[in-house]
Amino acid sequence: MDWLFFFEITLAGLGTGGLYALTAIAFVLIYKATRVINLAIGEMLMVGAYLFFGAAVGWALPWWLAIILALLGGGALGMVLERGVIRPLLGENPISVFMVTIGLGSILIGMVELIWTANPRSLPNFFPTDPIFIGEAFLAPKTFWSFVVAAVVIAVFLLLFRFWRGGVALRATASDQGAAYSMGINVPAVYSLAWGLAGVIAAGAGILLGSIGGISSDMGLFGLTVLVVVIVGGLDSVLGALLAGLLIGWMESMAGVYLGGEYEHLVTFILLMVVLLFRPWGLFGTREIERL
């Protein structure tokens, strides 16, 4: 076995895994705060990427300004979705809310295709292009830098989550909504905040993902893999999302190289089925106790 090659593939896989982890954080954020399984997370990511494309290519803005606009746009989208569609359904059957997010995903795809057509596009490159070597192993610079950015964003997010007032309110709401409300935490504002932040994170992940592999209206499928990531990690576990993200990124990269590209997603979904059958609450998730 060629260990250098193996190592390079592992690095590439961890690079994708970082993006999975980043998007998974957005997903878990929404889930923890509002108990909504947001199947439209992939589409929110796609919209973010297209907003960046629209600003950077359509309006020919400098890339840093385009990124800021796209992130703000993604955050606004998250808040609008929460306020307009999710909040009226709070307290309803969680399955209805889940299906609403499927509908939202479909709407977002349709809108993006209406505005930018369904053709794939490529994003302007804003990463340094010098080749990256870790030891002797070569790593594509885009992959490297997007991993670095994802890692930094995740770290900042974790710090916010722990120390910032809003982060504390988020965690309080996640652990007991009623108690949080009675302690004077503005729960509806927390909901908005969670969806807004998740929108920003998803948009950022979309820009990173799009700058590596280009963008298209079906890049929301990325969200399905993220869904697998959060299930494997355990829906309400941030740590689980991070580790499962890296694990699945690595697995896909291995399967892609050693089995063939078409096996990439197959292994993901087989892993999903195995986890659902044997450990449905995931590696780090909370096991729910059933009540009569």
Binding site: V85, G103, A118, S217
Partner: peptide, 13 residues
């Protein structure tokens, strides 16, 4: 086609 996709979603929602 995009219109159809969006309308399907809008109907669900």
């Amino acid at each position: 086609s995009p219109l159809r996709t969006a309308v399907f979603g809008a109907l669900i929602v």
